[in-house]
Design a protein around this nucleic acid. Sequence first.
DNA 1: CGTCAATTTGAGTCCGATCAACCGTCGTGG
DNA 2: CCACGACGGTTGATCGGACTCAAATTGACG
Lengths: 247, 247
Amino acid sequence: MADFLIRKLENFSRLSTEDRHALDQASRQRMRQIRPRDDIVREGDLPPGVTLILDGWACRYKTLEDGRRQIIAYLLPGDLCDHGVPILREMDHSIGSLTAVTLAEIPPETVRQLTADHARLAQALTWESLVAAAIQREWTVNIGQRTAFERLGHLFCELYLRLQAVGLTRGTTCEVPLTQAEIADTIGLSVVHVNRTLQELRSIGLIALRGRELTLPRLEALQRAVQFNPNYLHLDHEGRHLDANET
Amino acid sequence: MADFLIRKLENFSRLSTEDRHALDQASRQRMRQIRPRDDIVREGDLPPGVTLILDGWACRYKTLEDGRRQIIAYLLPGDLCDHGVPILREMDHSIGSLTAVTLAEIPPETVRQLTADHARLAQALTWESLVAAAIQREWTVNIGQRTAFERLGHLFCELYLRLQAVGLTRGTTCEVPLTQAEIADTIGLSVVHVNRTLQELRSIGLIALRGRELTLPRLEALQRAVQFNPNYLHLDHEGRHLDANET
DNA sequence: CGTCAATTTGAGTCCGATCAACCGTCGTGG
DNA sequence: CCACGACGGTTGATCGGACTCAAATTGACG
């Protein structure tokens, strides 16, 4: 059930069988189905407990009074949200589904046990939240400094690598179920300009799109073209040194 | 020593005398002076432990190969950085001082004791890191969706309220030791345009600048003009309900 | 086959960037 | 005491990337 999360965490350190089992159990307790394009939590609501995306895509977003919308983060399969958030009185942003989503609500008590009984797991979960923060920072840089072309390419590189980290790529291809309007709201551009920039990327042969299928035939070249440095994803098996303790 | 941090945390919940004392002790163990415009940690370095800004302004930033720079976050007096970061292998961004900075390095062991022995404090520290994350998200929105005018006004509102939360305002005035170039790198604009937008804000009477002194004579009006909603700062004494246990 | 959403195209406009110069202040050193 | 240079702020002119508005086309689906 928690396969994607487990797979992701193992980019950081190897988990024991019990670790994996415990995580899997925790994710089965309370599951919920969300329809596509539905709100999961709204700004102003009481913050929910820890939530794990089991399948599908969701996003954090914020809307201004005049309708402008910014997508703040993508929540992909295996992503966690809102570690300690119940401390706050109300949500300062909304979370909505993009596709159909299956999620698990993990009760605070279960989280406490999980981290208390499984030190390795606790560490891996901290890693996951640190990476989430790093991604948020990189988005600031992306939107603040890069051109439309770079922003878009950068976004695709990130999505590809994040999907790869949970095993959701086949070769150079992955599913990206986003409309151009959603992409626009993500990187702070207009739909029209996203469309034109997509064409540019395609014409150079740096990306290929067939329906929702995104292919990056020359990832290296794309990374160079848009100054993408994957270091902020901290995916290079950081916890290798921890494997020693483990069979 | 840790006055600013204590003051800030008490926006969330009241601390006991021991809480405050413990925090103060922790901040005295290892102190460091940084000169203005100096790097504290550089991208690629080994991440440092928990660091507390005792005085002065610093910032997180990232530089692209061609020299473009984005300031990702401001670290003001009372701000903490890098809670769990030693888990990561290397920094994905740099931290540099803007003014002269005094900081405290708090050893991991001290942090552990602090949070273990003082539940209230532990909660307040989580609150502080959640707020930091919320600010990061808001910056994404600010840069992604708002006009130059709004971005600048929004930044000033945020800075004013954050400084107020640590007692660094007098009336409607606060010190903002930033050059226009730094502001430009913060909100993704050119220096020239920042200059012109500043003039616009001044001419409407929404801000006044005298040297490094920023005055917001009509904060309410400014907030309305730039669609600033302070909810993401979670400063409205959230933990009031916790005071019951305390004298 | 009709409808609605998403994508694409075109034309015109504007916000903000760039380039380049100029001014004021301040610290340094002759 | 003054010359000098550095830096931050200011101004003007021009350019260009991205936006807006509007319409046409494609595609998915009942």
